[in-house]
């Protein structure tokens, strides 16, 4: 992953110099360990600031919504699936985009690493599938596979599904991963346990809406929680209002979510709200054989009707 950046820079520079695009959207080096900042490069001189490593978890498709320019965009597997979804939903035109595909080996979960060491992290270095964490008076090395974001650990679409150019050869997709183990654990609970589980899960929420805003799918001009005429949801920190927000947001992502993990990654209080979207993702797969963002040729199952749609739930 670390070696990709030279190729990303080369392609970006060429695109900008040739006037093929008005900007390239990628990442620049962050100021905190395990953080990079989404960044748009407008001139070939600025290309040097682009970076690529395992801290580029934010989904860049989020920065394409309703843009009018010609854009080069660096896209890992999940980003590319959200680009497909954006194109299907008319949030961007395929012709506007030059997609620089990045076969991805997974992003680092900073929460996991922070919790695994005692003390403040000063620097995190990545090489050969290992992640070395340095701090005052300690240095620890982890296997990258053990500190991946939860969604990356079970990802089976690491390669971009749509691209104009790849930065390297496609990577081998993970096989034999159990993608829905955590969802099944919840399904096995009793009603009361489920209810309490989500009560606890969502209790720390501060309603900053970072999950929603980091999500490429959440582009409504006015979100239902912001609507005031009529006001659907209370705006305070009442637990029922907080749950309503999270549950409804998840529903709005049904059949669209690519499990890119941006929501969980963005959450300042560490809530795994992916458990909600994953349930819907699993249902879409089981009921309709559908995974979001894999193709431009088919309409998503929830915006089409087919006579053979499953309907056991209708009595």
């Amino acid at each position: 992953m670390v070696g990709y950046i030279d190729k990303i820079k080369e392609i970006s520079e060429r695109l900008l110099k040739d006037g093929k695009v008005d900007m390239v959207i990628g990442f620049r080096k962050g100021t905190m360990p395990m953080m990079n900042e989404p960044h748009r490069v407008k001139s070939a001189d600025d290309v040097k600031n682009l970076v690529w490593d395992s801290n580029c978890g934010i989904n860049l498709a989020n920065y394409l919504t309703d843009r009018k320019e010609k854009i080069g965009i660096v896209a890992k597997g999940c980003d590319s699936r959200n680009i497909v979804t954006h194109i299907i939903e008319n949030k961007i035109d395929r012709d506007q985009l030059y997609i620089i595909g990045v076969p991805c080996k997974g992003m680092i979960d900073s929460h996991k690493i922070t919790n695994a060491v005692s003390g403040e992290i000063v620097d995190v270095v990545e090489s050969n599938g290992e992640v070395t964490v340095k701090g005052d008076g300690f240095e620890e090395t982890f296997n990258k596979a053990d500190v991946l974001q939860k969604n990356c650990a079970v990802c089976i679409h690491r390669n971009p599904v749509i691209y104009d150019e790849l930065v390297t050869d496609l990577v081998e997709e993970q096989a034999d991963v159990d993608r829905y183990e955590d969802v099944r654990e919840i399904e096995a609970m009793s009603t009361e346990e489920k209810h309490n589980f989500f009560d606890d899960l969502l209790a720390p929420c501060i309603r900053c809406y970072a999950c929603r805003n980091a999500c490429p799918l959440c582009y409504c001009p006015t979100c239902f929680v912001d609507e005031s005429r009529p006001q659907w949801v209370g705006k305070g920190d009442d637990p029922v209002d907080i749950k309503t927000f999270h549950f409804l947001r998840a529903y709005h992502c049904a059949g669209r979510c690519t499990d890119c993990g941006s929501c969980e990654r963005a959450c300042p209080v560490g809530i795994n709200m992916r458990l909600l979207t994953k349930k819907l993702e699993m249902d879409c797969l089981n009921l309709y054989g559908w995974e979001a963002g894999l193709t431009l040729d088919n309409r998503p199952p929830l915006d089409t009707y087919k006579p053979d749609d499953p309907e056991e739930f209708i009595k």
Partner: peptide, 8 residues
């Protein structure tokens, strides 16, 4: 709905 703790 069942998933989030409403009886089926």
């Amino acid at each position: 709905m069942e998933f989030m703790g409403i009886e089926r």
